[in-house]
Design a protein around this nucleic acid. Structure first.
Lengths: 347, 347
DNA sequence: GTGAAAGCGCTAACAG
DNA sequence: CTGTTAGCGCTTTCAC
């Protein structure tokens, strides 16, 4: 397969100028006479020429590519975020290189080093080990090493590392959900799903308890259902076990995310428990699943647009020598749909 | 931000050999004495060194990146396919560069040329204009031009172009669904969703009619509901209009994809029509939505693994000078879940 | 088996 | 304002 042999030399020759001049009109960094500029631009558009990014990168030691390490793009949460990142990157004339690591540590490492050898200019790490409550020290050290080579921005936390963090406001998220439920007359509130070693889940559970306390509601251990993960199946399992084990069903259930909520819906349906007539359901992430489920889910939305943009902008700011804030927080907003009802005044 | 300055020169110096020798152990293409080889390998792993892909690419005119133009990664169908492609690419030691074009022609062009300037080695185009029944000639010409520079593999068709095609077996897919429904006693079968100018939809509709004919079932125009797109909302709209306009409801509905099926479910629910008690529902694509919906959808699955692998392998085969088949077909399999019932023997 | 040297396409001094 | 020149880091002849 023959590559196109158009280069600045070819353009230069046909335009009767030097390669440097062509480069100058390409980079727009130096002045070129109108006459030559026009000639060159004509050739450029004639050949649909765009400079070889590898050659360019060799001199500038910039590839124009931002690497993104992502758990699984099939998860609607990450898919949405990835799209926003791509948008933000392209706005700044950068390309994105996505790598799914499928929660496989070995795969993560492989893909990471592959991206580094592709000379990515910056790295964004989502989920996985940067979400753990207790940082893996070996991992932190490795990431630290990388963050000496390029900007590293993560969506979670990594103790003792130099990474920049952009985090969802998990505290605000759970507080708002609790306030919403309580103000609608719910007292028996249950929380299903997740793994306690995950930072965001830990935060949610802690605030859940303190919100109960603040409103004078006694904490019931049965109502905090650990399932170990974030899948639909885990929601199904968690809800089933709650129904079987408890004497008194809660009036409201908080699912750790939309996928888990779908499993909860399935369990409730099989037990002929109506949503929201018998039990109200809220969840986190406001993915497409919240919109497509029956009933449509009331779910905690984040400003995904801002999230993606902040991730990219932070990486590029560091790349350009800036000093953005080490931790930035993305705001939340509860999207109210059809899965919750009010217990007040018999509505 | 300082890049790591480790290069083959540094390795060479420390190992007391020439840069060429380091290159030789890196590429494994020439013989190097065991002694020197070991020395070099030690340094390589000491520094976690991996050669600069841009420099390498400059000489080999290969970037090791395959570009993928995709409509929207948030669509579970494309997300699943992208994951398979990534897997297949990494197995061959290639990276993937994904670009979402959001069904925006202008964006598609921008991202395409951006990827070309990033020196992608091959291009895979999914959906969008390569799915159109009637090829846009200007577009075909552009793609043709690109396919002179690099292998281009598409998931649809493009008349008069040199692209390689990897297609789902849409004929088999609709045939199997029709046979399944008819063998379960369904005669009044309706098909909802899509746009007739889309190649795969056109095929499905044509075969739908000929299957009816073959089984001596009269074609009812009301039962072919064009909605113009593939969204959930379109299914909702299509089903609503069918319910309002027809005297006799069908016993089975075929949705053009899972998303459309979800809209149909919502419409049926609002009309208190039970699935599958009153109406059976089948759809295409077998995405995660088929598994997470209530009831779980009977849906046409494709061998996504093979699909992704074939896409990548075809591109790389062409790149290496091979001559794969111009058109390759991916088989289908109906996954039976809870959304259809049999009308036979009063089951 | 191994080193020296040229060159991939581009940018960035450096002269003029 | 513009041409010449020297690399960027790697692979690949070509001698030895």
């Amino acid at each position: 397969m023959e590559r196109d042999k158009v280069s600045i030399y070819r353009i230069a020759e046909e335009a009767g100028v030097s390669p440097a001049t062509v480069s100058r009109v390409l980079t727009q960094k130096a002045n070129v006479s109108d006459e030559k500029k026009k000639k060159v631009e004509k050739l450029i558009s004639k050949y649909h020429f765009s400079p070889n990014a590898m050659a360019r990168g060799l001199t500038s030691s910039r590839s124009g590519i931002i690497g993104v390490l992502i758990p699984d793009i099939r998860n609607p949460f990450y898919a949405g975020l990835a799209v926003e990142c791509e948008q933000a990157a392209h706005d700044r004339d950068y390309s994105l290189m996505l790598s799914n690591y499928m929660n496989d540590m070995e795969l993560e490492e492989q893909r990471l080093y592959k991206m580094i050898s592709q000379q990515i200019d910056a790295l964004i790490i989502m989920g996985g080990r940067v979400d753990e409550l207790i940082t893996d020290e070996v991992y932190a050290e490795r990431i630290n090493h990388i963050s000496k080579l390029m900007p590293v921005v993560i969506t979670g936390k990594l103790d003792g590392s130099d990474c920049y963090q952009v985090n969802l406001d998990n505290s605000e998220a759970i507080d708002r959900i609790m306030e919403y439920l309580i103000s609608n007359g719910h007292h028996d509130i249950c929380m299903i799903g997740g793994r306690k070693e995950v930072d965001s889940t830990y935060t949610k559970r802690t605030r859940y308890r303190s919100m109960l306390h603040r409103h004078g509601i006694e904490f019931c251990p049965d109502y905090l259902v650990e399932t170990g993960d974030y899948s639909m199946e885990s929601g199904y399992r968690g809800m089933n076990s709650l129904i079987e084990s408890t004497r008194k069903l809660p009036s409201a259930v908080i699912a750790i995310n939309d996928l888990t909520a779908l499993g909860i819906i399935q369990s409730l349906r099989e037990h002929s428990i109506g949503i929201p007539e018998d039990i109200s359901l809220v969840s986190f992430d406001n993915t497409i699943l919240a919109e497509t489920s029956v009933p449509r889910l009331t779910s905690m939305d984040y400003n995904y647009d801002q999230y993606g943009k902040t991730l990219i902008d932070t990486a590029l700011a560091v790349l350009e020598g800036g000093k953005p804030q080490k931790i930035q927080i993305i705001p939340t907003e509860l999207i109210i749909r059809d899965s919750c009802r009010s217990l007040n005044k018999g509505i």
